[in-house]
Design a protein around this nucleic acid. Structure first.
Length: 266
DNA sequence: ATGGTGGCTGCGCCA
């Protein structure tokens, strides 16, 4: 099963790019974040034409929004928490039909957290930490994930080599110790295995996002690994390959995030 | 130290 995660930064604007993604990565399941579209305006026809006959979407006007597009049948996991009681369309939990039984799949868009890494001074940072706290508590209550995959734009680059300069990024939202520790607690609670670092050793730089604000993003290469794929321990041995589709950052009218693929041999 | 770009939406918000 080939699972792709991509922060598309407007699904209506960038729906045409999905055909490039499909050509390059041939996903069975495609998880999107920041669709920025109410459900009634989701480009179903374009997505259907690419072979994704099964779709679950959770969007809103202007901000946020997640979607799971699939070649295999999906079932919405009902009754999952409404994080921070905000109805802000940052999570979809689904079951994907697969050989040997369904796989539980979670698609997250974690709050970015604003600019100031201080929960008193910056309510967005408080929201980010509260969001992760709630997920961690929920995860701890359920115990270790089984036959499960978690993907998304988690807006945290946890490792030293998930950012261009660990030293210069320690005070920058996305790489502060408090965020990294919060993410580690979430990961421990579910006994999640980091699928990208399964393939790429921690001493090697690995980025999935480059700011729009650089004159030359590729030359500067001040990237961050904000997009993640985690798998439950029972699936760790079934990991077959990964791709970080860096060329997507050069596509015309590109997102600032690139698609990430993980292939599982179920 | 600052501002740099981009996508909403409707001139400010969020990333």
């Amino acid at each position: 099963m080939r699972i792709v995660t991509w922060n598309i930064n407007s699904v209506r604007l960038r729906a045409p790019l999905l055909s490039h993604l499909v050509d390059a990565l041939e996903p069975d399941v495609l998880c999107l974040q920041e669709t920025k579209s109410p459900d009634e305006h989701f480009p179903h026809e374009a997505v259907e034409a690419l072979g994704f006959g099964h779709r679950l979407i959770r969007g809103m006007k202007g901000y946020n929004g997640v979607a799971v597009l699939s070649r295999r049948p999906l079932r919405l996991r009902e009754g999952e928490p409404n994080w921070c009681s905000r109805d802000d369309c940052r999570h979809l939990g689904v079951d994907v039909e697969a050989e040997g039984g369904a796989v539980e799949l979670h698609n997250f868009y974690v709050p970015a957290g604003g600019d100031v890494p201080d929960r008193e001074a910056n309510p967005k940072f408080a929201h980010k930490l509260d969001f992760i706290r709630e997920i961690t508590d929920w995860t701890a209550g359920r115990g270790a994930a089984k036959r499960a995959v978690l993907v998304g734009d988690l807006n945290i680059a946890p490792l030293e080599h998930d950012v261009w300069s660990h030293r210069q990024m320690l005070g920058v939202v996305s790489h502060t110790p408090v965020e990294v520790e919060a993410m580690a607690g979430w990961q421990r609670a579910g006994e999640w295995h980091d699928a990208l670092r399964h393939f790429v050793p921690p001493e090697e730089k690995l980025y999935t996002w480059w700011s729009y604000r650089a004159r030359d993003w590729e030359a500067a290469n001040r990237g961050r690994r904000l997009d993640h794929v985690w798998v439950s321990q029972d699936l760790a041995g079934k990991l077959r390959s990964h791709t970080v589709l860096k060329p997507a950052r050069s596509w015309a009218q590109c997102s600032d995030h690139v698609p990430v693929l993980v292939e599982l041999d179920l």
